[in-house]
């Protein structure tokens, strides 16, 4: 019996459970994501993605499962971005961060717990992502973005969740050279911004950071500000990967939580 026939046989009300998908993956020697894609190809929803429907079509969900996203920075923004993309059903995540969790990260960084202090952020995030969605292929790189050119070259999208301006500009340059869309996010206090750069289109990063050598104190970053920006970044990733209309390349949204104000320009 083919795996598709087996999926049809085991499906209930147009869905297949994680337990059954996992069992078929083991029986047929396939990755779990492959079983999910084959189910979607006959419009059977893996139960875990059911509430993505009808916002996503089965074809769009397959596109996501076939996408590779680099999350540069696994702190306040990156942890939440990685978690949301895993839950959404992004097929491959490459998590990049050279740092280890510190106690001062506990106020906002999703994967920072009392137990993970001292551990590499990217490794912890990868392990937690595996618990959230075992179909996602996750790679942790405990290094700076400057040393992740190969990962960026094979990405569908790169997400800037970094915390320093020189690295953000380097990442933008690497993404442009690789011809990969970049989704930028940054937060400071009660304000945040996101921006998009598409390959070969209008750029924005140098406009956001006209003075890369500026002296910057580490800003206050409450968890809710980081969460809001991370969610907006993921929405743009979702739009780009599924071919929807995203924020125009070269423009940015500036957001202030205490003023209920969004400014696009």
């Amino acid at each position: 019996m083919s795996v598709v026939s087996a999926i049809q046989r085991i499906a209930t009300e147009g869905t297949i459970s994680l337990k059954h998908a996992g069992k078929l993956a083991a029986e047929y020697g396939l990755p779990l994501a492959e079983v999910e894609k084959r189910a979607l190809s006959i419009e059977i929803w893996p139960l875990r993605y059911l509430r993505n429907s009808p916002l996503l079509s089965p074809t769009e969900q397959i596109k996501l499962l076939e996408s590779t996203v680099v999350v540069a920075g696994c702190g306040g923004l990156g942890g939440i971005v990685a978690m949301l993309l895993a839950r959404l059903g992004t097929g491959r995540l490459i998590l990049v961060d050279p740092d280890r969790f510190e106690e001062s990260n506990l106020n906002r960084q999703l994967f920072c717990t009392v137990k993970t202090i001292g551990m590499f952020k990217a490794e912890v995030a990868a392990r937690k992502i595996g618990e959230i969605n075992p179909a996602v292929s996750v790679t942790a790189i405990n290094d700076t973005v400057e040393n992740t050119r190969n990962a960026i070259n094979r990405a569908s999208t790169v997400i800037d969740c970094l915390d320093n301006i020189p690295s953000r500009l380097t990442l933008a340059d690497m993404s442009r050279r690789a011809g990969v869309p970049l989704i930028h996010g940054a937060v400071s206090g009660l304000a945040g911004e996101i921006a998009v750069e598409m390959p070969g289109a209008k750029t924005v990063m140098e406009r956001l950071y006209p003075n890369p050598a500026a002296r910057q104190r580490p800003p206050a970053v409450p968890g809710f500000s980081a969460g809001a920006v991370a969610a907006l970044q993921c929405a743009e990733v979702w739009k780009i990967l599924t071919g929807r209309k995203a924020l125009p390349s070269g423009s940015r949204i500036f957001w202030e939580i205490d003023d209920f104000c969004f400014d696009q320009g």
């Binding site: 970094l162 915390d163 301006i165 400071s188 304000a191 950071y209 006209p210 970053v221 980081a226 500036f254």
Partner: peptide, 21 residues
Amino acid sequence: NLTQEVHEDDVVAIFPMVGGG
């Protein structure tokens, strides 16, 4: 740019640099 001259009735907006992650 910061060097841009302004004129009568112009509207200037100044945003802070946002860099945290």
